[in-house]
């Protein structure tokens, strides 16, 4: 019994230690003057791997989510004779919540796990240590560009997701279910406020990007440098990022609903 408690305590201490070291890690990565002209090719390459290659999954998911929300939403609204409010329902739910959150979850799964695996592999094959021995800080050269690329890529992907989803819902609502096109858009425009809805969605996706990339980089950098270690780190990235995104979503939504 006592042993159980002590083990629990040990787990708690380990958890606190890893949060602390990840915080220090973040500080070491970010506390530098960005040498952008030098780093730009690396950032661009990472934007390709993280951003462009995630586009497919984002667009397809966006389309399906938009269509489903359109279908389900219309189903319910029709009962109140409020079918013409479909545009509003779609825009608000997707721009504020579904867009940023689902893109972040997909991003953590696809790009986050790929990044962790890549960094973990570099650690296991001693590429990071050899870079260190050459007198070049791998945090600045490898981690930092990926961080910046992720901060740019996820908000862009979220916007793309949101727009695709809204058009997906439009397609279902107007073309298929017969909602009037004019009232679809005008009700939406009347209800959507740029600052409250669109901007808050963008801010959410920036916060999610920060958290997801931070976790992915940290797990890769501190993994056990074996094949098994890398796969464990990748799993942890996906799990932790997803939980963190959902947690921060709640926090941000609570802050934003209250008016900010």
């Amino acid at each position: 019994m006592l042993e159980l408690i002590s083990r629990l305590g040990q787990r708690g201490l380990d958890g606190a230690q890893s949060i602390g070291s990840s915080g220090l890690f973040l500080l070491r990565v970010l506390a530098r003057r960005p040498d952008l002209p030098r780093l730009w090719p690396a950032i661009r390459a990472q934007l390709y791997f993280i951003g462009v290659l995630s586009c497919l999954i984002i667009v397809v998911s966006g389309l399906f989510i938009g269509m489903v929300v359109g279908l389900q939403g219309y189903n319910t609204l029709e009962k109140f004779g409020a079918g013409s409010q479909l545009g509003q329902l779609l825009a608000l739910s997707i721009a504020r919540e579904l867009g940023p959150v689902i893109s972040a979850l997909l991003f953590a799964g696809r790009a986050g796990s790929a990044l962790t695996a890549e960094i973990g592999l570099m650690k296991a094959t001693e590429q990071l240590a050899s870079m260190d021995m050459m007198g070049i800080d791998p945090l600045g050269r490898i981690i930092y560009p990926r961080f910046l690329a992720g901060l740019i890529a996820l908000p862009v992907l979220s916007l793309i997701f949101t727009v695709v989803a809204i058009y997906g819902g439009y397609f279902i609502g107007v073309q298929w279910l017969g909602v009037d096109s004019g009232s679809f858009w005008s009700n939406m425009q009347a209800a959507v406020n740029f600052r409250l809805d669109v901007a808050s969605g963008i801010i959410k996706s920036v916060v999610f990007a920060f958290v997801a990339i931070w976790i992915a980089m940290f797990q890769g950098f501190t993994c056990i440098p074996t094949a098994q270690g890398i796969s464990q780190a990748t799993t942890r990235t996906v799990v932790y990022s997803s939980l963190a995104v959902l947690g921060f979503d709640f926090l941000l939504t609570a802050m934003m609903i209250g008016g900010w």
């Binding site: 094959t125 050899s130 260190d132 050459m134």
Partner: peptide
């Protein structure tokens, strides 16, 4: 200072550790 010192050192890793 450590990074400066390392420029004058070379360590050849067992696996080569080339950047893939």
């Amino acid at each position: 200072a450590l990074y400066q010192a390392r420029r004058k050192m070379g360590l050849l890793f067992q696996s080569g550790a080339l950047f893939t």
